[in-house]
């Protein structure tokens, strides 16, 4: 509550074109938050969804996939390759085709 009041005061001062007071002490003590996690998000159902769930949700939410523009098979292939080579996703050669098929069918164009 106090923090909010200080913030409002600082912004009001600045809005009036007055420089803020010179001293702001560095923070002390802990701050804790609780992130909501994937909050009810899921991959679209379809053939191969299990493979995508097993390989593509370790490091980030499914929103990384679902918010992309409609990508071609070549572009989805490049994304899966990038996850392996650049980010070290543990995906075997045999797992790549079913995942690319799934992504192209549900989030892409042939």
């Amino acid at each position: 509550m106090k923090r909010v009041a200080i913030a409002v005061a600082a912004v009001l001062l600045l809005g009036a074109g007055v420089a803020a007071a010179a001293t702001v002490a560095p923070p002390k003590g802990p701050v804790s938050i609780s992130l909501p996690g994937d909050a009810g998000m899921a991959f679209k159902p379809g053939p191969g969804v299990g493979a995508a769930q097993a390989s593509c949700l370790t490091c980030h939410s499914s929103a990384y996939v679902s918010t992309q523009p409609v990508l071609s098979r070549a572009q989805w292939t490049a994304e899966v390759v990038k996850m392996r080579t650049a980010y070290g996703a543990p995906i075997t050669d045999a797992q790549v085709p079913p995942i690319v098929d799934y992504l192209t069918a549900q989030y892409g164009k042939p």
């Binding site: 938050i33 609780s34 992130l35 909501p36 996690g37 994937d38 909050a39 998000m41 980030h60 939410s61 929103a63 990384y64 679902s66 918010t67 992309q68 523009p69 409609v70």
Partner: peptide, 23 residues
Amino acid sequence: FANGERPLLAFPQKRPLLVLSPR
């Protein structure tokens, strides 16, 4: 733009903002 639907959710210390990814 296409696939541009974004939930509006309040994360800790934040007012509702457009969620591109929760994690």
